[in-house]
Computed example of a mutant assay.
Amino acid sequence: MFDNTPIQSYEELHQALDALLEENLNVTANLANASALLDHFLENINWVGFYLFDEDKEQLILGPFQGKPACTTIEVGKGVCGTAYRGNDIFIVDDVNEFPGHIACDANSKSEIVLPIYKDGKGIGVLDIDSPIYERFEEKDRVGLIEVVEIIKKYI
């Protein structure tokens, strides 16, 4: 289990996340712990969490997160999260103000990365991470966070 030791690399994050999640098969608890671990590991972020697809409402609903209160629903195809989910595409947005239709839940957010979560061809939701710094997210973050999503998918 995670012991609050500083994590220095994505490889260490992946090992800690896998160990943390294997102890519990409850989706909500696992996503809550994943967001807390990511918040602990990632520097210069102001929000990290999940939006989960609600089949009945056909929209993304706020899930476990770390940060300020957030938008509770996002329409599929709207904003960075809804667009990433709809197209099953990863988005790195260097300046959220430049993204057409960006949904500003926190005016302090300047950049964002969103990774869709699909399992067995079914859309589960997205991992959304915001930063108060422009151009915060790089290729190493995209690659490292892809593996984070792969680990999470084993436990949801």
Rank of each mutant, 00 (worst) to 15 (best):
D141W: 04
L31N: 02
K110Q: 13
T28E: 13
G63P: 08
T73C: 00
A29T: 13
N46Y: 10
A32H: 09
N44F: 06
I146L: 13
D94M: 08
D141L: 03
D95F: 01
D94P: 02
E23V: 03
L60M: 14
E23D: 11
C105I: 06
D128A: 07
V126A: 03
I133Y: 11
D56E: 15
D95V: 01
E139G: 00
F91C: 03
L145D: 02
D130F: 07
I113K: 05
A36K: 15
R142V: 03
G49E: 13
L37Q: 06
D95T: 01
Q66K: 13
L37M: 08
K68F: 05
I124Y: 15
P100Q: 10
N44T: 02
Y85I: 09
N44Q: 12
V126P: 00
N88M: 09
I103R: 05
G77R: 06
N33S: 08
G123D: 14
V96L: 06
G49Q: 12
H40M: 02
A29Y: 13
T28K: 11
V48Q: 02
R142S: 03
I133E: 08
N33H: 12
L52M: 11
A107F: 14
E22C: 09
E135P: 00
V76T: 07
P116Y: 11
D95Y: 02
P64N: 13
V149I: 15
D95G: 02
F65K: 09
V114K: 04
E55S: 14
W47R: 09
T73P: 00
